[in-house]
Structures are given as C-alpha cells and as structure tokens.
Design a protein around this nucleic acid. Sequence first.
DNA 1: GGGTTGCATTTTGTATACAACATGCCAAAC
DNA 2: GTTTGGCATGTTGTATACAAAATGCAACCC
Lengths: 230, 230
Amino acid sequence: MDGSTFAIARLTLPEAAAERLRTLIIEGELAPGARLNERELSERLGVSRTPLREAFRMLAADGLLVQLPNRGAQVVALSRDDVRHAFEVMAALEGLSGELAAARVTGQDVEELQTLQAEMEQAHERHDLPTYYRVNRAIHERINGIAGNPILTQTFKTLNTRLHALRFRSNLVRAKWDQAVAEHRQMIEALAVRDGAGLRDILIRHLKAKRQAVLESMIAGSGDAAVPNA
Amino acid sequence: MDGSTFAIARLTLPEAAAERLRTLIIEGELAPGARLNERELSERLGVSRTPLREAFRMLAADGLLVQLPNRGAQVVALSRDDVRHAFEVMAALEGLSGELAAARVTGQDVEELQTLQAEMEQAHERHDLPTYYRVNRAIHERINGIAGNPILTQTFKTLNTRLHALRFRSNLVRAKWDQAVAEHRQMIEALAVRDGAGLRDILIRHLKAKRQAVLESMIAGSGDAAVPNA
DNA sequence: GGGTTGCATTTTGTATACAACATGCCAAAC
DNA sequence: GTTTGGCATGTTGTATACAAAATGCAACCC
C-alpha cells in the first residue's frame, strides 16, 4: 500500500500561517509592495515570530514575497515583464503537459473531462463566474494530472500561484470568456483522439489569451517593478 | 545608476547555512535519506537552530530536503522516475530557452560563445574534466542568459540543483563526452544562424543524452524513492 | 539653508529556554 | 508468545529575551 493513504493531513503552524498569508496576498488584503511587520503580523495571526518567519521563507520560495536582509519581507509587485516571462515559461510547460496527457489519456479520463466541460458550459451560460473558475481550474488540474509528471505539476503550480497574486480575475470580458469556453471544448476533443501536437497548440493559444487578459488588467506602465523581485 | 551596483553581497546567516548544506548534500557528505539532527548540525555549522531551520525551509523549497512534521528534515532520495520527470520538464524549458536565445542573440554573443567553445574543446582534448564542467556550465548559463527570461533561468536552475544532489558527475564515459562536445558545437552554429527550431532540437537531444547518463549512474531499481519527496 | 552627524526608536536577526511530540524499551496482561 | 500500555529519553516545535541593524529625527556645523 501507499502507506500515507490514510494519514490525516496535519498542517504545521508555519504551513498554516503561510496558507493564511497566501490568501491575504491573493485577495489583496496585503497589497503588492507592502512591507510585513513581523511583530504586528504575528499578533494578527496569533502565532509567534519564529513560525511566522518560516512561513515567510516558504512564501519567498513561492515567489510571493521578497526578503531583504535586515529589512524584512515585502509582498512582490510583479512587473509587466515578469508576467510576460512567467507566461512564456508556463506556455512551454502547458505544451509539454498536453503532449504527455494525450499520450497517456484513458477513455475514462475523457469521460470525466467531458462531464466537467458540461458543468463549465452550464456555469458559463448562467454567468456563474465563481463556479466557472472552480471547474475551469479542475479541468486544467485534471489534464495536468493525466500527464503524470508530478514535477511538471508542481513547477506549473508555483508559477500559477505567483500570477494569482495579481488578482486579475475581476475583469473578464464577455468575448474572451466565450473564447475560453470554446477552447476548452477543443482541448477535450484533441485529448479524445490523442492528438498531442494539437492539444499542445490549443493549450499554448489558450494561455496566450490569458496572458493578454492579465496584461490588460494591469495598469499601464514600464517593465519595472515597484519592488525588486530577484 | 543601478543603485545596487556597488552593494557588497552580504550573505545572511540562513543563506550561508543553506549554501553550506547544499554543498554538503551535493558532495555526498550528507547522504540521500539521511536525517538531519538540528542540534548536532547547528553545532557543526556554528549556528543556532533558528537560522538553521530557515535554511532547511529554503532547501526544502529547492527540493533538496523533505520536512516531515515533528520528525525533522531529511535529504531527498530521488527515484528514477523523479529523474525522468525532472528531465522531461527541463527538456521543455531548454527548448524554450533555445528558441528565445536564437531570436535575441547578437553577433557579440556568438563570438563570446565561440571563445568558450574553444576553451571547452581544449579542456576536452587534455582530458581536463573540472575545466570542462566549468566551461560547459558557463556555456549553458550564457545561452540561458541570452534567452532573457529570468523566470525561465531560475526555474531551470532549481531543477538542475535538485539533480546535482545525485552526484552523477563521476562516470562520464568517453563516447558520451565526445558526443556532448560535438553537440555543443552544433548549438553555437544553430545560434549563429538564428535557427531557433534547430537549436531547440539540439538542446533537447543533448539533455536526453544527459538523462541517459544520469539514469545509468543510478543503481538499478524501481521507480520508488527511499524517502517520500512530495 | 543645506548638509552631515549622532542619537533614539523601531525592526529584524539570533540564541535559548521550555513545551509538545515521537520513539524505543520494558513490564504487565491476556 | 504476543500485544498493549506506560514510561524514559531524545528530538522537534514555539515563544521569548536579547543583540544587531536600520530608520527617522533633531541638533549641529559650515
């Protein structure tokens, strides 16, 4: 047996703190560029500074925070270039994911995806954005899972989390939404016939549209970030 | 001015500790699967447990350690599947790197790379393995730099560091060495004529050969790791 | 007045004491 | 003989005290 199949997930305190902070960052409670005071935050979270600092390290590894020596942590402010670069890498990874998934997909996988797709289209029709996002995410995670490469999944997830800190969800315009739903249908069709190259292309196109949406949601500006993020 | 141009690099204590541990792991001083006792290690490194724990978090993010709740940290033991997965992702990233580099390369870049290539071939001829590795690494970093995508560079580096923990350097056989040098020459030729697709293919082939070498250097076994690494 | 220097305050960095948890052993019960 | 429960020991987890560094302010000098 797996051995960890029945293990109950116990979140350590630093993990829990990191999770909470991640939410606060993604929801914009902690704004990009904001400096995080350790004492204040530890009181707000009801945790002492030691586990909080470990949480900082984890988030810094995720790219959500930057830590400056003797000057603490601040929330990253992604530049337009950062977004472009992240999407460039994510496109390559999605492409790989598509090829692998097409090679390994089973009939049952396709059925499950078609169910999800139907669910998503219903949400689309009744303008249920939250459900749409949830199912959308589920579909992508499913395809990633079919690809069967945990390192790929994890690498992709890290980049994705970083971008989520931008909170670009808000302004999804109708035309793009329609397009995204259509692309999703194409994905599953490509998967069903195991067309790896085709799926690859669709995923990359899909991601390019997403990048465009993210960039448009960002206020205009140069490629400079408000905060160093390397 | 840049502002940080004259800044002297001060390594924080956790960073320094992480760096030292990274070396110890890569050089095999700390064997895969080994459990790291905090008190003992902190004494050996002359550092208290607090910064050491932050170093652990950093290395865990790099994928060099796994941290089990209430059971401390252990050095990861990569399975053959892990290696396969990592190379799959790295190949996709290298391919992207090649395409981007071909699109952005300048004449000066090519000249510099040709100098490095000559240096490498000399090292190859006099069987100077350490120099070969150093220049080899420099060339790859150079190409990665030309691609001009810091996120790509960093993602790649992380995966590379992970694999280095395997210490596969030792058994490089003659035939493979010759082949690697030849492939390097092809890379630079492809770059010189801005053949992105060509460079992409060469880099991916190059990486596949490397993967093969790494897998052969690992003792035979199933895909299972001695230590959970997710 | 503009600039610099030194001090007070705030904040981060490190060490360490204490608490919680895991592990191995031994004895007792079945 | 095997299993279970409790205990002793060691190791990790957390809080906190103290040290070091950065920051802001005010006095001082030119």
